[in-house]
């Protein structure tokens, strides 16, 4: 991971978010473009990691599904950026939501395939990391229900279809947060196995991403969101972490290939 480049980018963004040098409409385009760009980098990185597996390998599928999910999310974000520029107001709901929601579902499916296979393996001690992950899921469920789902249904005067679409995002976020928290807590309790480092980073990134999504829902409901909000930076960092997970997996598989081809010392 070109860490210095990421650190320079974060430093620039911290400066921008602190000093607010641009008008809000320009900043909205800048923030959305950065998020979409980071999402594209993550999609490419995860796709390359999938490519390191053999074509017939069933374990290639989680990585493929996750890369497709990220690509769909990228297209959804691009559609949103274009429509915002064209219409000059919030285009929700639009075609972008179809891409974003299907992207979330596809990514979640990839994560689920892996989690289902991983949690059944013999090296996983029973109940390992389960208590903290259940606690995180319960807190997320309580927070999202109280601060996003209930207010959307009770306070908004929008049509019911729009409210249902708005509700789908936090529901998917809770599901994804619970699953990724389960994986993150499992690998944390196992002292971060070297072979699972990429999955640990990925789970952490997804916990961050979905926490930001839920918090964004809360800010939208309370009309507190604005383009200079720090939550935009959180999304970029989460997507860059996902990209880092892909690169970590590529490094691991390359290392294993090199080790397998070398002679074993006596």
């Amino acid at each position: 991971m070109p860490l210095i480049g990421v650190l320079i980018y974060i430093a620039i963004d911290v400066f921008i978010y602190s000093t607010r040098p641009m008008p809000e409409n320009v900043m909205a385009v800048y923030a959305d473009t950065m998020i979409a760009g980071a999402c594209l980098i993550a999609a490419v990185s995860i796709y390359l990691a999938a490519g390191k597996f053999d074509r017939s390998d069933i374990n290639r599928r989680p990585w493929q599904w996750m890369s497709y999910g990220l690509a769909l999310s990228f297209f959804g974000k691009v559609i949103y950026i274009i429509l915002r520029q064209v219409s000059r107001f919030d285009p929700f709901p639009c075609l972008g939501d179809l891409f974003l929601l299907s992207g979330d579902l596809t990514f979640l499916w990839g994560l689920w395939i892996f989690a289902r296979a991983c949690l059944r393996k013999d090296f996983v001690p029973p109940y390992s990391g389960q208590i903290p992950s259940v606690a995180i899921s319960m807190i997320a469920l309580f927070f999202t229900s109280a601060c996003v789902i209930v207010p959307v249904f009770s306070m908004r005067s929008d049509p019911l279809t729009e409210r249902w679409i708005a509700i789908l995002y936090p529901i998917l976020d809770i599901a994804a947060l619970s699953l990724s928290a389960r994986l993150a807590c499992l690998f944390w309790s196992l002292r971060q196995p070297p072979i699972a480092r990429s999955w640990f980073i990925l789970a952490l990134a997804y916990v961050l991403l979905n926490t930001a999504d839920s918090f964004h829902g809360f800010l939208e409901v309370m009309h507190l969101y604005h383009p200079y909000h720090w939550i935009n930076l959180t999304w970029v960092i989460a997507y860059l972490l996902i990209a880092n997970a892909g690169l970590t997996q590529i490094r691991l598989l390359t290392h294993l290939d090199e080790t397998a081809s070398s002679e074993i010392p006596s």
Partner: peptide
């Protein structure tokens, strides 16, 4: 069987 979920079948076989 345990490692293949992370490495794929071929690398797990190599291990």
């Amino acid at each position: 069987d345990n490692l293949s979920v992370f490495t794929g079948n071929r690398r797990a076989h190599a291990i």
